[in-house]
Design a protein around this nucleic acid. Structure first.
Lengths: 229, 229
DNA sequence: TAGTGGTCTAGACCACTGA
DNA sequence: CAGTGGTCTAGACCACTAC
């Protein structure tokens, strides 16, 4: 049986976990490890590269590979499409449009998206429901200069997120999570008391051409996001 | 100049972005792409593997590689050590201990961590300050059966997070983010009004031996976490 | 069952960078 | 400037799975 990069990775991880390679210690170089494991250097390289990507070790040319003293653990969160998120829970998904209009870009948004004065922007507000219960409130601004098709979209029966997914293959994004207090409007839509602590996701996306959209997703009371690593 | 996997990756990404390869479309197989780019198949493989890891494409043996229609974009968040997070902002870090005792495991925690009845647990509550302003409230439970050294730690001058980092090389974890309302106690410590919406991180970590710790980090008003992808 | 991706190898050259 | 990781190559065998 040949030694795979997964074998090497698992063994190194095990040695780190067992304390054989304590935090800060220097691992042997790739050539030596390859000899020890009886495999090619490329195999060791892949194992160690993945450990580095996961934040377990730190690699520097000439300096070698060290066990990180404070592992930069990073959590990966999937960014779900709300319809799929709801249906994955076995619930019935429903969408409703609250507002949809083209308007002048407000100043705060112009600053956030680096837009020009006097530009128009599409503003869509809608709700996503799970089994008839309010699930998520969506407040979105879309830049028609980058995605002109938005001027012909109605959003009457499905949300702008799904429309954008079909329209824009992918984009760069900045995403933030925060806690906010429900104002009267959000409280009405999410069926909670004003002042309730709500979880909010805010995402801005760009194409090389310019900013596409800013969206504020406010989740129903008690929503949390979870991941393992 | 030889063609690198980054070249291939960038070119494919560009074609996807430009709509040359629309969502759902099938990419050529590795051998063909290698011929087209004039490089080895391994080079193409690495490029496409990374695109797959990033959720841009989907790969299946025999079926080939397709552009994802709904990119499973995933955001990676670094899990910072609070001292480093504060010092990285150029602020002065200060720590203070609020409570530290060994006690019986409360029922809710026993259920959460799958502990035995009658077991003891170390409960530590402390605060982290940035430039003299409350930054984060930490409420932590540590299982001495897995990390017995905790019974000798004082936590008088530095927090349990740093102690654990030095003690436990790494571990599996489940992390959640949510919004909560400040109770009187949190309000006092974080200098805000009761009922204020606060951002909370909750993390449980395990070693193969058993659960290590459950921690609730409550951040000061207005805290948000952000990432780009 | 045939085609695709997954991985290993042995060797090579190179880029970075710490001692 | 010497040692380390970063990467490419050409070829090979294999594992999975859609057709």
């Amino acid at each position: 049986m040949t030694v795979t990069f997964k074998d090497v990775k698992a063994d190194l991880l095990d040695q780190i976990a067992q304390g054989v390679m304590p935090p800060g210690s220097l691992l042997p170089n790739e050539t030596d490890l390859a000899a020890r494991y009886g495999c090619a250097r490329a195999t060791v390289n892949r194992a160690m590269r993945e450990l580095a990507e996961e934040g377990i070790v730190e690699r520097k040319r000439k300096a070698g590979t060290r066990v990180r003293s404070a592992p930069i653990r990073q959590a990966r969160f999937a960014i779900p499409v709300v319809r799929e998120e709801i249906e994955a829970q076995g619930a019935d998904y429903r969408y409703s449009l609250i507002q949809h209009r083209k308007q002048d870009v407000p100043d705060w948004l112009r600053a956030r998206l680096s837009l020009r004065r006097g530009q128009k922007i599409v503003h869509v507000v809608c709700m996503h429901w799970a089994d008839g219960v309010p699930y998520q409130h969506e407040d979105r601004w879309i830049n028609p200069e980058v995605v002109p098709g938005v001027l012909r979209a109605s959003f009457a029966t499905s949300g702008p997120n799904e429309w954008l997914l079909a329209e824009v293959p992918f984009s760069n994004a900045e995403i933030s999570f925060m806690a906010i207090e429900a104002d009267q409007d959000l409280a009405d839509h999410l069926d909670c008391a004003p002042g309730t602590a709500l979880f909010r996701t805010e995402r801005t996306t760009w194409l090389p051409d310019g900013p596409i959209t800013l969206v504020r997703l406010t989740h129903r009371q008690g929503h949390r996001i979870t991941t393992r690593y």
